[in-house]
Nucleic acid binder design. Structure first.
Lengths: 212, 212
DNA sequence: ACGCTTATGTTAATTTTTTGTCAATTCGCA
DNA sequence: TGCGAATTGACAAAAAATTAACATAAGCGT
């Protein structure tokens, strides 16, 4: 099905398009041109057209783009038209915070289970979901056909757990642990390295300070 | 001081170099060549040399790089040699999770205050830090010389609060709210858009599935 | 001390990404 | 229905990022 290879740079911009299109739609706006979007989003109109054309001709010459249609199409490209079943591995503060984010559920990302190593938190309920011991992880993934595991555990155990998840047939890992996971290529890994992000900010602060 | 413009692509890789160098250092390894790093990190040796040379000649021909020295130098480039004073704005799950991350403190990112709109959480203590009402925000920033504000509030109020922070003279904002902040250029903004990241993962899952 | 080996720093080539341009198509109005 | 304005999709150009190549400098062993 896949013809040309699509760069991650383009994919990375799609969620932002989706967000702005959603806002326009909520304002009742039906059509938008690449130039108008360009003004709102502060990117070149050329890039918008180029990006959208990577996936198909969603616009019409002389008219522009239909906001609702384009919103839906980008949603489909991002796989938001189907439901994803998730588990959280690591019921610490961050894990709990993510479970409590209801906006993910609205996008079709359904939290089905929470797992933790610590017997003291097992049995506890977070937003109606019981925290289970790690021993039940493998069976749970298979029984509930879990697609995505959210890894919110310390780096020390992350590699080991990731390999266990891989062996259980998980499709994707949303990794918040501060390590690079080396897994078979068919398993998708998306990293959120918070400390890297904070260091970038720190760099830009220093850099801005030096310019004066 | 700044001569050439340094691309964010390079800056974005520095934290990862730092992480691997830290690991090597902890293993007691004193020297490393770009080729060895290349093997470990799965990036080209050429890119490593190119990246490091952006900031100066840290290596020595025929020898390689001294792990400890390079680690320290990258740390300095990232501004980790000086302390940053932070406040959290939004004492929800995510805000609390971040305060509880002790690894930030070890890097010199010191949480000095937590603020929240909700009177019910004000007065509560998180890791010894009292949650204060938003009314005290402006004075607190000035009195404690806060550099960085961590924005963990819903998007509806984020823009308004960001402008308040800007008016108080904040230097940088670590933004977890799902909006683009438009602030004066001298204020550095680093976005962590979690839902964007999750959508990327979702895309890559769909994309991988189609290839079969 | 000398020569061989190693591995950087640097420049050049290549690839990728972004931006600019324009013919072609559609809309909207008279 | 026809004509001018608007706007895409495609292609070309420019810029940026990545990779390759190599001359040069330093280490290391004899």
């Amino acid at each position: 099905m896949e013809e040309k290879e699509i760069s991650q740079a383009v994919v990375g911009r799609l969620p932002r398009y989706l967000r702005y299109l959603g806002e326009l739609r909520d304002e009742g706006i039906e059509r938008v041109s690449s130039q108008e979007l360009s003004d709102i989003m502060q990117v070149t109109a050329s890039q918008i057209r180029q990006d959208l054309n990577t996936f198909g001709g969603f616009g019409q010459q002389g008219y522009g783009y239909n906001v609702g249609y384009l919103y839906d199409e980008i949603g489909k490209i991002l796989g938001l038209n189907r439901e994803h079943r998730l588990i959280i591995v690591g019921a610490g503060n961050l894990g709990q915070a993510l479970v409590n984010y209801t906006s993910f559920e609205r996008r079709g990302f359904l939290f089905r289970g929470i797992f933790d190593h610590d017997p003291k938190v097992c049995g506890k309920k977070i937003r109606g979901i019981t925290v289970r011991p790690m021993e039940e992880l493998a069976d749970f993934i298979r029984e509930h056909q879990i697609d995505i595991a959210v890894l919110t555990i310390p780096k020390t155990s992350a590699v080991e757990v990731a390999e266990l998840l891989a062996a259980c047939g998980i499709k994707g890992i949303w990794n918040f642990a501060h390590v690079d996971l080396r897994l078979p290529g068919h398993i998708q890994v998306e990293n959120v390295h918070l400390s890297d992000s904070l260091m970038k900010l720190s760099y830009n602060l220093s850099s801005a300070a030096e310019e004066m």
